[in-house]
């Protein structure tokens, strides 16, 4: 089932983000560029949760693997962004593969806790392994002449990186829309809805779930790679449990059942925080109230508004018919 409206909504938002960035100045462009990198993280959580049935509380660890891969690879591959992002996807996918193999056979809540254990363990190790990660101080991105297929690109919170992130995200969303109309996606859905039944029908449910989780890892890794290029500095808190929790909240606010919700969730929470910071220090208090309000009145997230509106419209249509 292709969600064409979802795709249009998310692409329109991405387009609006890019257009807006050209109008509202360098500061906001940087904010939006960073937001786009987090959109990958939010989408990866939705994919893991809703399609691989793994409530992964370690998505930021996977995201961080991608970010560190770019930091480590940058000097070796002389600023070749395509290769750096490939490295980040591989790193994310590899970490997800290991995590997936460990938690796949656990119960639903067991998998959530299993990923918490992994996130906490990696965070502690990363904090202590300063030579590798820079620990709490973090590591800077080496200054290189960055280029994408020969086109020079300046790393940092700028319009070039925003556009690169947005284009990659648009390709990802369009690709997902395409795949979701194919037969293979029906199998994924069948596995997600009832793994046992799919298994009986002859599908290797475990392989499908692992594959989806690894893909979600590649997406998170790619986001992490872009984040490293935008931020030019990666500290260990990027991979921490609280970052994973943020990704869950973005996905949930956007709408956990739709992959197109993640970008909206990121923008809603991050832009609200950014604007609120201008007049109050009690940002967390207000974000907390906002989250409670979302849970109560928008339980399906922003994307859930569509079904709600659709119900409302059909009610009106029925009423007019009678």
């Amino acid at each position: 089932m292709r969600d064409t409206v979802g795709l249009i909504v998310s692409l329109s938002i991405l387009l609006a983000t890019c257009l807006l960035a050209t109008l509202i100045g360098e500061f906001w462009t940087g904010v939006l560029a960073r937001c786009v990198t987090w959109m990958f993280l939010a989408i990866s959580f939705t994919l893991a949760y809703s399609y691989a049935n793994i409530p992964s509380v370690a998505q930021a660890t996977v995201f961080g693997a991608g970010a560190y891969a770019v930091i480590w690879a940058a000097p070796a591959i002389a600023g070749n962004i395509a290769l750096m992002l490939l490295a980040s996807m591989i790193a994310g996918g590899a970490v997800a593969l290991v995590f997936g193999l460990l938690v796949l056979r656990m119960s639903h809540s067991g998998a959530a806790i299993g990923t918490i254990i992994l996130a906490v363990a990696f965070s502690m190790l990363g904090n202590a392994a300063i030579g590798l990660t820079g620990g709490t101080d973090g590591l800077p991105l080496a200054s290189e002449a960055f280029h994408l297929f020969g086109i020079p690109i300046t790393a940092g919170p700028n319009i070039g990186m925003l556009l690169l992130g947005a284009v990659l995200l648009a390709i990802l969303l369009a690709g997902f829309w395409y795949i979701s109309g194919r037969r293979i996606w029906r199998i994924v859905r069948a596995v997600q809805q009832n793994a046992l039944r799919a298994q009986v029908l002859g599908y290797n449910a475990v392989a499908y779930r692992i594959a989806i989780y690894v893909i979600s890892g590649c997406i998170a890794g790619l986001g992490g790679g872009l984040y490293a290029l935008v931020s030019r500095h990666v500290a260990i808190e990027t991979i921490g449990l609280s970052m994973s929790l943020k990704s869950i909240l973005w996905a949930a606010v956007g709408g956990i059942s739709s992959i197109y919700g993640g970008p909206i969730g990121v923008l809603a929470i991050q832009l609200a925080s950014e604007v609120l910071l201008r007049w109050t220090v009690r940002v967390d208090l207000i974000i907390g109230l906002m989250l409670v309000a979302v849970a109560l009145w928008l339980p399906q997230g922003v994307m859930g508004l569509r079904t709600r509106n659709a119900n409302w419209i059909s009610t009106i249509k029925q009423w007019r018919r009678t």
Binding site: E26, G30, G138, S231, H233, A235, E237, T238, E274, L277
Partner: peptide
Amino acid sequence: DVDTGVNQLR
């Protein structure tokens, strides 16, 4: 927080 800190500096 690093991200917020750098954003606010900008």
